[in-house]
Amino acid sequence: MFEFCTDHETLPRLQWLACYLTTGKHMGFYASFGTVLLLLAITAPAALLFGFGGASAARSRLLPLNWLGKAYIAVVRGVPDIAFFLFFVIALDQAFEWVRHQVKCPDWDQPIRQGNDFVVCAAAKLPLGTAPQWVHETYGFFVAVLTFAIVFGAFAANVLFGAMRAVPHAQIETAEAYGMSHRQTFWRVLVPQMWVYALPGLSNLWMVLIKATPLLFLLGVEDIVYWARELGGTANPRFTDYPHGDWRMWYFLALLVFYLGFTRISELVLDRIMRRLSHGQATAGGEAQRRAKGAA
């Protein structure tokens, strides 16, 4: 990176550190923060979409759909989420391969589960055995995102379902009195009004989502936890220009600080949004704002 880095053995301490922190591997480490942010950027809307689907299904008057939605919401209660992550990553992968197997190799006559093996025809493998490395990595990331979206979608469905029920019933009755159909009531009255009720739950969910991102490591993605373990481990002078002892503690301290800052900033931003949204609403927050203004 810097010019003085060429003879790394004679550097003074501060310059040594500057050189050390800008090696190619460290660039990978910094890029993995981008991976985390990318995961958040994709997962948050996807989970919201899943959640919206789940909550609408749970409100549906069609019985099977209603059950499906309720089961989806209930599934997050009682079972640890890490178990879900570990489960879905394998289950989704196998589900994709199974479907592709049915489509691409209809005349395959052996069973797919042979003892401890899961065997599909070569054409159904995901990603294909011949695919380049980046396809494998992207696919891994995609499965991880989908897993996050499913698990957090269930949480979001729970929040949105509660928010939909919190919209004052009189609003819906009024809409019906004006002759709106069920669908119109849902889209024009219920959905626009539910967000202020959903926001406290959703901001909590956002915090939880931030704090769940290190679990990407468990799903086999090369994320910040992976790099922190990799880079922090004892560096032998035989293999690297910058030998050092076991620094993993310091790397994880850096991650800890990163997350603390991230959640703190989110908290401040979400507080501001909440204040804006409850402006003029018939809720306790809106009432408090109105009073504060009257007093001033």
Binding site: K211, A212, R248, M249
Partner: peptide, 16 residues
């Protein structure tokens, strides 16, 4: 404010 997962890692390496 920080993930339990990272707390575990940090604590383990700290104790180490």
């Amino acid at each position: 404010g920080s993930p339990l997962f990272i707390q575990f890692f940090f604590a383990y390496f700290l104790f180490l």
